[in-house]
């Protein structure tokens, strides 16, 4: 008799704990956006990926279409090789343009895909040829400063 109320409480405890885990997974985490059961992989080389991380989102027109699966350095080209997992539902033309963008000024970096006009689609394992690297803030600033310096020199000539 006593054991059943005990069992009941332990049951409540376990169910509550598992429920909390489910809430964490679905409501707090991104498991609900993981349901890209059918995916294919694409590759792209970037000369500089900035702060891009694996699991970063891949968006096209702002819609999430996949995630970065792996980042490594290509030992022959000395460029970053990014493997992307894309939802099977979305197909992109061969001349799609991959661009590393930043959400907001200091936000997370993601890959934006801009479709081209080619009639052939990218297949699993293909590489996106046209890429643009991340904008690195330091480069931007130094380039700006150099051009300023150039500008200020010219009138003195």
């Amino acid at each position: 008799m006593k054991r059943t109320t005990l069992d009941l409480w332990v049951g409540i405890f376990v169910v509550a704990g598992l429920g909390a885990l489910a809430v964490l997974a679905l409501k707090v985490g991104n498991l609900s956006t993981y349901n890209m059961s059918e995916t294919y992989q694409l590759q792209a080389h970037f000369s500089n990926i900035g702060g891009l991380k694996s699991q970063a989102s891949i968006k096209s027109s702002g819609v999430l279409v996949g995630r970065v699966a792996q980042i490594s350095l290509d030992p022959e080209r000395y460029e970053a090789k990014v493997t992307m997992t894309i939802d099977k539902r979305y197909k992109f033309p061969k001349d799609t343009f991959a661009n590393i963008l930043t959400s907001g000024l200091l936000g997370e970096q993601y890959i934006g895909l801009i479709p081209g006009g080619d009639e052939a689609f990218l297949k699993a394992g293909d590489e996106i040829k046209k890429t643009q690297s991340a904008v690195v803030l330091e480069d931007l600033i130094s380039r700006f400063l150099y051009s300023k310096a150039e500008d200020s020199k010219q009138p003195n000539k």
């Binding site: 909390a20 885990l21 809430v23």
Partner: peptide, 14 residues
């Protein structure tokens, strides 16, 4: 118990 309690803690925290 420990992982279940930890999940509950996080969920309540959120």
């Amino acid at each position: 118990s420990m992982p279940l309690l930890s999940a509950l803690f996080s969920a309540m925290g959120v």
